[in-house]
């Protein structure tokens, strides 16, 4: 079966940000779906009202940023319950979180912090992911992080760690192509090899975003600021990813210097056009 005969996945989506609450209330954005950060919608009032309308208009995905699934001290039950309450209330099409930790000693650091990829870490993350899936009674997707350092003892390559996590817990993978590229440049690793090492049946969503190019002591460091258009190298990874994971919908994230909604919608349309082209080339190559 060629990719073009498949049921097409949703058109690309965009992240819902508070800066666009007014615009999305005024008219439904012409995108396939929208994703929210769970932690921004755990209270009541205006944000929940906006979310309720968006949920009526479009498929919604809940993306957690604060569960600290890589935390050695386990999950915060109160926070887990609040996220579960939100998921129960809006019945999203997807739920996802990160391969990272953000809580230690009960303190929340507001960052997606890196893990050493060891058997011990795999046990910790798998335990937390299973607890999350049990609480939500559904499968979640786990996203690869962008990182700025590696530990000296980290014997498992990140894609192998994610594959093992998926196998052990039954979770899926949210593949962020910008994160792959950012980490690959920051650590001198192979981004294409990363995409190819991810098991094709595990990927349930793709993320795209822009990054900031910084230089430190003559070394290029990419900062994952979600503050610009997707760069060409990441588009190339995306083309490879849509051929390898044709059923996974794509999301555009933009969190810094957020442009008007129209610009984000245009970026999502660009992702749709590139996806279609990538699959055509795939068919041509197969013929």
């Amino acid at each position: 079966m060629t990719a073009s005969l498949r049921e097409p996945p949703l058109a690309a989506g965009i992240g819902l940000r508070a800066a666009h609450h007014g615009a999305v209330m005024a008219s439904r954005p012409s995108v396939g779906w929208m994703e929210i950060h769970a932690e921004n919608y755990l209270g009541g009032g205006a944000p929940r009202r906006v979310l309720a309308q968006v949920r009526r208009d479009l498929p919604v995905s809940v993306h957690g940023v604060g569960l600290s699934l890589g935390g050695a001290e386990g999950l915060d039950q109160a926070h887990l319950d609040r996220v579960a309450g939100l998921v129960a209330a809006i019945e999203p099409m997807l739920v996802s979180e990160h391969l990272a930790w953000s809580v230690a000693g009960g303190v929340y650091h507001n960052d997606l912090l890196p893990l050493p990829y060891t058997e011990e870490s795999l046990g910790v993350v798998a335990g937390n992911v299973s607890r999350l899936q049990d609480r939500l009674r559904r499968r979640v997707l786990i996203e690869n992080p962008s990182t700025y350092l590696r530990f000296d003892h980290s014997p498992i390559p990140e894609p192998a760690f994610l594959a093992a996590l998926a196998q052990r817990t039954g979770c899926g993978i949210l593949l962020d192509l910008n994160n792959i590229y950012v980490s690959a440049v920051n650590h001198g690793l192979d981004a294409v090899g990363y995409v190819d090492a991810i098991p094709a049946d595990a990927v349930g969503e793709l993320h795209l975003a822009g990054h900031h190019v910084a230089h430190e002591d003559g070394v290029t460091i990419l900062i994952d600021d979600h503050g610009s258009s997707v760069c060409d190298a990441v588009w190339e990874l995306h083309a490879r990813a849509v051929r390898r994971f044709p059923d996974a919908p794509t999301l555009i994230e933009w969190d810094t210097a957020i442009p008007p909604l129209d610009r984000l919608v245009a970026e999502a349309k660009a992702a749709d056009a590139r996806r279609a082209r990538a699959l055509e080339h795939d068919d041509a190559a197969a013929a």
Binding site: A18, P47, H212, D225, D255, T256
Partner: peptide, 19 residues
């Protein structure tokens, strides 16, 4: 009141002054 304080990006200026 500004909402939406939780994000999953890295602050653009995080790299400044790493040394």
């Amino acid at each position: 009141v500004k909402a939406g304080k939780n994000d999953c990006q890295t602050a653009s200026s995080s790299c400044a002054g790493t040394s």
